[in-house]
Design a protein around this nucleic acid. Structure first.
Lengths: 207, 207
DNA sequence: AAAATGACTAGAATACAATTTTGGTCAGGA
DNA sequence: TCCTGACCAAAATTGTATTCTAGTCATTTT
């Protein structure tokens, strides 16, 4: 029944090729023949694994998101304190995406403008999954009495929003600044947010 | 000596025209003749106030930023508690920009892609001024013992970064969601950040 | 039989020349 | 002194011929 996953990891190899060609040519100038040659397979074979060119680009960004999500899952499961884990997750979501597109000379929005609409939809999905993973940790922290008791998923979505401007969507990795500076920036922001999340002995009212 | 500001507010009228035509046609299809007609002046007159078309678009976004900055200045000077002011400033910087481009059908980055480079540079300047205005309030709050004692300007820059993803740069106002939802979102984020900024009686260490 | 291939085709992209439009100038008018 | 619109070089657009490419599928390979 399944018409995908014929060979072991051919799909992965194709996506590796997509990554290389997107970096070198961009979406429009990446041709299916180029890609087949790059991967060392016939053009038709690509269509045994992907329905078309658009889906190739989208699957590529999906893969980045999935890899990130796996990393977040590892951090989430690590035996560190919830605040440390949240901090690591925020830093990771920014730096992982930075590293994933550091070799591109365009930002992702421009690179994939031909599939903008679907790209935005997928991104929403990716963000939501990231939020869910972070919400788990927030819940844990709340049960331990470390975090204050707001709705975890809503809070996690805020953490996502607050770090989204550091992702290479409308700025290239280069334009976002040096990796070290970016790390510094997201780290500081994470610390600030975490201070806000911590349960405090006696709440000071905002007037 | 000055070759600008001949008449009272002709410059403002021209920028009003730019706003109308950008919304209706976008940057490329907005012609200088269209604009002159829209404003009711001769084409040459525009060049007495602006050096060229690119500068028109950039002056338009500058004006939005200046107006916002004036509002932030008002909030900054209001006699409310520093946390309340910071909160209002964050909400304002998001909603004011939302309202300023709500009638556009494209996001700002795409709308002004022809002047992308200079646009990014100006934006940096705008952000920095916003940060400076917020830093004032942070300093005030620190002197009152309300905020903890980190570098105010650095902290203000973090507040800017954390709300930047809610600005209509790569998403249209429509795509950012309903105004009410956006307000809710930025408000919640502001509250979270403020919690992080507050001086706490005894600091709980993060492990 | 299952998997992979590349020749093939319709439609899209490109190239190029002819034509139109437009950003910017400036001599003249109000 | 301030403003204007005719004017021009350069850019954008249009029309057309040509090339290129996404996707298909009959054939070959495994």
């Amino acid at each position: 029944m399944r018409h995908i996953a014929r060979q072991a990891n051919i799909r992965e190899l194709i996506l590796d090729g997509v990554d290389a060609l997107l970096a070198r040519f961009g979406y429009r100038k990446m041709t299916m023949e180029d890609l087949a040659r790059q991967v060392g397979i016939g053009k038709g074979t690509i269509y045994l694994h992907f329905p078309g060119k658009e889906e190739l680009a989208l699957a590529h960004v999906d893969r980045i998101a999935e890899r990130l999500l796996r990393r977040l899952g590892e951090i989430s499961a690590a035996r560190r304190s919830p605040p440390e884990r949240i901090r690591a997750m925020l830093v990771t979501r920014v730096l992982f995406r930075f590293d994933s597109v550091a070799h591109y000379s365009q930002n992702l929005n421009d690179l994939l403008s031909a599939v903008r609409k679907e790209l935005l939809a997928r991104r929403q999905g990716h963000f939501e999954k990231e939020a869910q993973e972070m919400a788990k940790v927030l819940d844990e922290g709340r049960e331990m009495g470390i975090f204050s008791g707001a709705d975890s998923l809503l809070t996690a979505r805020l953490l996502i929003w607050s770090t989204n401007s550091m992702l290479p969507f409308n700025l290239t990795a280069r334009e976002l600044g040096k990796r070290g500076e970016l790390e510094e920036r997201v780290s500081r922001l994470a610390d600030l947010l975490l201070q806000g999340l911590l349960q405090r002995p006696r709440d000071k009212k905002l007037k």
